[in-house]
């Protein structure tokens, strides 16, 4: 396969995984105004549940179905007892609190599963390679390239076509107005946070066959997720899609074209976009 084509596929598959990991972050920020440092750790928990379900029942799909739900329940507890008391407080306190939650989850995972690296195999149907563009490419990566947009479209349909989705967007725009017309904001917030955690964990389960499962997963991904949502426009989930795509492709082509700047490139991109378009590519300008 031509290396340009290969890198497009590399960039797309990584970008889509990045999208699944970070889209929850942007939804939570958009509706609740909270930048959740523990988001990466919720993602990591998804991977560990994938590992655990494979160990228990030998099925990746059961992990995909149940893992994110368990993480969402955990998120409900976190929101209800830890985050709710500080909604009215300063953003920095919310950052500090979610940072604390991140430390607890990261170390908790180590207490339960140990600090060794683990490997989760993709399900039979998604393993191996597929012939594509006069070459071969891993089936699992092709699956990621397809799954990303599917989830994106499903989210878009949910937000624009269902009553729930519309209510959410209304609450994101003006919380007080939404409360006046009868939306129960606290319940809504709990559900949004749980939803953000659910989709982060979904990303975690899907990432498990792609990379080794270990206690550092969340820490590695959180800054990259921040960059994705910021360059796309915070609170905008089409923005997260675009941001993830850009970062994924940049990662793929940067390795060949600008190897010396690889480590700094996401930050350079971030600075350029924030200086040129303060609210991100698809964020609403003030």
């Amino acid at each position: 396969m031509d290396s340009v084509v290969a890198n497009i596929l590399n960039g797309l598959s990584w970008g889509m995984l990045l999208f699944l990991i970070s889209v929850g972050l942007t939804v939570v920020f958009g509706v609740m105004g909270i930048l959740n440092f523990a988001h990466g750790s919720l993602f990591m928990l998804g991977s560990y549940f994938a590992l655990q379900f494979v160990r228990w029942v030998g099925s990746f799909w059961i992990g995909l179905l149940l893992g994110p739900v368990i993480v969402a329940f955990l998120a409900i507890l976190i929101e209800r007892f830890l985050i709710r008391p500080i909604y009215s407080r300063d953003t920095s306190l919310q950052l500090l609190l979610t940072f604390g939650v991140m430390l607890i989850l990261d170390d908790g995972v180590r207490l339960i599963w140990g600090s060794a690296y683990h490997v989760v195999n993709p399900p039979q149907i998604l393993s191996g390679t597929i012939a594509i563009f006069s070459g071969t490419y891993p089936v699992y990566r092709v699956f990621l390239v397809i799954a990303g947009p599917l989830v994106g479209v499903a989210l878009w349909a949910f937000f624009t076509m269902t009553r729930w989705g519309k209510t959410l967007r209304a609450a994101a725009m003006d919380r007080r107005m939404a409360e006046i017309i009868g939306v129960r904001a606290p319940l809504l917030f709990t559900l949004v946070f749980a939803f953000g955690a659910w989709i982060a964990a979904l990303g975690g389960v899907l990432a498990a066959p792609h990379q080794s499962v270990g206690p550092a997963m969340g820490e590695h991904i959180i800054i990259e997720s921040f960059i994705v949502v910021v360059i796309g426009g915070m609170g905008s989930f089409p923005g997260a899609f675009v941001g993830a795509l850009i970062l994924g492709l940049m990662n793929a082509f940067g390795a060949t074209m600008l190897p010396d700047l690889q480590m700094a490139m996401p930050y350079i991109l971030l600075a350029i976009i924030l200086l040129a378009r303060p609210r991100g590519i698809l964020g609403e300008e003030l």
Partner: peptide, 24 residues
């Protein structure tokens, strides 16, 4: 030379670009 070789940062989890680079 160094710029044709692959030096992924420690935090890398997706090595596909580097694998493609080395193969090609």
């Amino acid at each position: 030379p160094d710029d044709k070789a692959a030096f992924p940062p420690l935090s890398t989890t997706d090595f596909s670009p580097y694998i493609t680079k080395v193969i090609s």
